[in-house]
Simulated scan of single mutants.
Amino acid sequence: MNYMKMALLASPTPQAEAALEELHRKYDWVDIEDASLVIALGGDGFMLQVLHDMLARQQNVPVFGMNLGTFGFLMNEWRSDDDLLQRLNKAKPVTVSPLAMKVTTISGEKFSSPAINEVSLLRETRQTAKLEITVGGRVVLPELVCDGVLVATPAGSTAYNFSAQGPILPLDSGTLALTPISPFRPRRWRGAILPDRAHITFRVLDAAKRPVSAVADQREYRDVETVEVAIDRTNALTLLFDPEHALDDRIAMEQFAIG
Rank of each mutant, 00 (worst) to 15 (best):
E118F: 00
G148Q: 06
H245Q: 15
P186K: 03
S11V: 03
L8K: 03
G65A: 15
E21D: 14
D147F: 07
R123F: 03
V63C: 11
T153C: 03
V135A: 03
R187E: 09
F256C: 05
I39T: 06
N67S: 04
A177F: 00
E143M: 14
T226V: 11
L169Y: 06
Y3M: 11
A115W: 04
D53K: 13
D82A: 07
D196T: 05
L55D: 08
T158I: 03
Q59G: 04
R233A: 12
L23V: 10
Y221H: 14
L37G: 07
V135I: 11
L74W: 10
R123G: 01
D217Q: 01
Y27I: 11
A56Q: 10
S11L: 05
Q86K: 13
P62W: 11
S120W: 02
V30S: 08
Y221R: 12
L9M: 04
P114W: 15
M1W: 06
V135C: 06
N2S: 07
F71D: 10
I106D: 04
D83I: 08
A100G: 02
E143P: 00
F71A: 14
F256Y: 13
A230P: 00
F202K: 07
P14E: 10
H245D: 13
R25W: 06
V135L: 02
F241N: 03
E244T: 11
A208Y: 08
L85P: 01
A230D: 02
A216G: 14
G148A: 09
S163F: 00
P170W: 14
I133Y: 01
L205S: 05
V151I: 14
A207S: 12
D217E: 02
S36T: 15
I251T: 09
V145I: 11
P62G: 10
A177R: 00
G72N: 09
P14A: 08
A208W: 05
M253Q: 15
A18K: 02
M47N: 01
E132M: 13
D81N: 13
K130S: 13
H24W: 07
D172K: 12
L178W: 02
S213M: 13
Y160Q: 09
I106M: 09
G156N: 04
G259A: 12
A207Q: 08
A35W: 05
P14K: 11
V229R: 08
P186S: 06
I39K: 04
Y3L: 12
E109T: 06
E124Y: 01
L150F: 00
L55W: 13
T105R: 11
L141M: 11
P183L: 01
E132W: 03
N2T: 02
L239N: 09
A56K: 12
S213K: 14
G108F: 03
N117H: 05
S213E: 10
G108D: 10
E225D: 12
Q165L: 07
L169R: 04
Q218A: 13
G42T: 10
E124K: 11
D242L: 06
A198S: 15
V30M: 08
G174Y: 13
M253E: 15
L194C: 08
E33I: 07
I106E: 09
R187I: 07
